[in-house]
Simulated assay, not measured.
Amino acid sequence: MHIDNPVSSHTASNTNLLTQALWIGLILSIAIGVGSYALLTWGEAAAQLLTTTDKHFWYLSRASDVIAYTLFWLAVVFGLLLSTRLGKHFNAARVFALHQYLSLIAVGFAAFHADILLADNLLNLNLWQILLPFGFQTERGGVALGQLGFWLLFICAFSFYIKKYIGQSAWRWLHFLTFMAYTFISIHVFIVGSDSQALPLLVFYAGSQTLVFLLMTYRLVALKQAK
């Protein structure tokens, strides 16, 4: 009969906790370092911009747009990792948790991205223009795709909470809307807003979308081979 050594288990547990603490410390250090560098480099220019422009809400909307897209992209990547053979190299429970909560946080930032424009006196928008597709007077097609993508993302993100009521099969079919949402939002970020023409963002959008579509292709090929 094999009996686990409690001392060894306790030591292993302490080692795992220490490793996690070191990783958290490293990530926080990098984040603080990057944030400090950005603040020292662009802090004064950003402060001058905010005090000399009347487009504060527009800039907040653009910034939250990039954050929402990034979070959604990560959620899609983690979801695709779970649904392919690549997922066996990761802790499935943790990847699923990241996939779920990143989707929810992305919804929050996307909602902020749209709702903050209600405070912009230059655009003079109302709530229905924000909520309903084709409500904008300019760039209606691109904005409408973003709005449709948001509602599809909203449905997919909150489908986690109705999964037990609709069943695994129905939930999986509903979850396929994620790909449509990502496609709509990907087109939206490319064609709406002047910041999408900035080279760093252009490279990020192109690179992130290429990765997603490669993973999607890999998944489809794997499904075909499994049949």
Rank of each mutant, 00 (worst) to 15 (best):
Y69I: 10
Y69R: 07
T70E: 12
T70L: 02
L71D: 07
L71M: 15
W73H: 12
L74A: 10
A75G: 15
A75Y: 09
V76H: 11
F78V: 00
F78C: 09
F78H: 05
F78M: 05
G79R: 06
G79H: 06
L80C: 04
L80K: 02
L81F: 15
L82E: 09
S83Q: 15
S83A: 15
T84P: 00
T84A: 10
R85C: 07
L86D: 09
L86K: 02
H89F: 03
H89K: 09
H89E: 06
A92L: 05
A92V: 05
A93S: 12
V95Y: 08
V95G: 07
V95Q: 06
F96C: 01
F96H: 09
F96N: 13
H99P: 12
Y101C: 03
Y101E: 01
S103E: 10
S103Y: 04
L104V: 15
L104H: 11
I105A: 09
I105G: 05
A106I: 01
V107M: 11
V107W: 09
F109L: 13
F109T: 08
A110R: 00
A110I: 10
A111G: 12
F112L: 14
F112M: 14
H113D: 08
A114L: 07
A114G: 03
D115Y: 12
D115R: 04
L118W: 09
L118N: 07
L118D: 01
A119M: 06
N121C: 04
L122S: 11
L122D: 13
L123Y: 03
L123I: 04
L123P: 11
L123E: 14
L125G: 02
L125Y: 10
L125T: 02
L125D: 00
N126V: 00
L127E: 11
L127R: 14
L131V: 04
L132T: 11
P133G: 03
P133H: 07
F134G: 08
F136D: 15
F136N: 13
F136H: 14
F136T: 09
Q137K: 15
Q137P: 01
T138C: 04
E139H: 15
E139K: 15
G142L: 04
G142H: 07
V143Q: 10
V143E: 07
G146C: 08
G146R: 01
Q147H: 02
L148I: 14
L148S: 06
L148C: 10
F150H: 09
W151S: 10
W151R: 10
L152K: 04
L153N: 07
L153A: 13
L153C: 02
I155Q: 08
I155P: 02
